[in-house]
Amino acid sequence: MKKHLTFHLARHTFATTITLMNGVPIESISKMLGHTKLSTTMIYEKVTQPKVAMDMAILQQKMNENE
């Protein structure tokens, strides 16, 4: 691996890959990171195609349960 690892990179990876991509709400991530403003956490939010697909699948499942 040729990437220089930093505290910032680790924090960003935690916020995006580990939590957000596993369905943790942005509000919870904000608390985990110790942010007082949600807008600060939004910097870490990185909406990717897999995340959008996952969210749509969850929505579809909820809609099917309500039928």
Rank of each mutant, 00 (worst) to 15 (best):
P50I: 11
N66R: 14
T17Q: 11
H4N: 11
A15E: 01
E45D: 13
F7N: 07
P25F: 08
S39I: 12
L33K: 00
M42G: 01
Y44S: 01
F14A: 10
K31F: 15
E45L: 08
M63T: 12
I18S: 06
K62W: 08
I26C: 06
N66P: 00
T48Y: 06
I18T: 11
K62L: 13
L59Y: 11
P25T: 13
K46C: 12
K51L: 13
G34I: 05
I29S: 00
S39T: 15
H12M: 15
P25Q: 08
L20V: 04
T13C: 08
A57Y: 02
I29N: 01
M63N: 09
G34R: 05
E27F: 03
Y44K: 02
N66C: 10
V24T: 14
Y44E: 00
S28D: 13
T41H: 01
G23M: 00
K2M: 10
R11W: 03
T36K: 10
L38K: 07
H8G: 02
T40H: 07
T6C: 00
L20R: 01
N66M: 15
H4P: 02
T41D: 02
L9I: 04
F14W: 12
H4L: 07
M21V: 01
T16K: 10
K62C: 10
I29M: 06
G23Q: 00
K2F: 09
Q60T: 09
L38T: 10
E67M: 05
T36I: 15
M63K: 14
A10C: 12
M32G: 02
T13D: 09
S28R: 15
M21T: 03
I29V: 15
T48C: 09
L59C: 11
G34M: 05
V47I: 08
L5S: 04
V24F: 11
L20A: 03
N22V: 04
A10L: 14
H35I: 03
M32T: 13
M54H: 07
N22C: 10
E65R: 06
K46D: 09
M54K: 08
V24I: 15
V47G: 00
M54E: 10
T36R: 12
K31P: 01
T13A: 14
S28C: 12
M21P: 00
G34S: 11
L20D: 00
M1K: 13
Q60Y: 01
H35Y: 07
A53W: 01
E67L: 09
M32R: 14
T6A: 00
L5Y: 06
T48S: 15
A53M: 07
Y44A: 02
I43Y: 11
G23A: 01
T40D: 04
L5G: 01
E45S: 12
M32W: 15
P50C: 13
T41M: 01
N66G: 05
M21E: 07
K51S: 06
I18F: 05
I43M: 03
K3D: 05
L20H: 04
S30D: 05
Q49L: 11
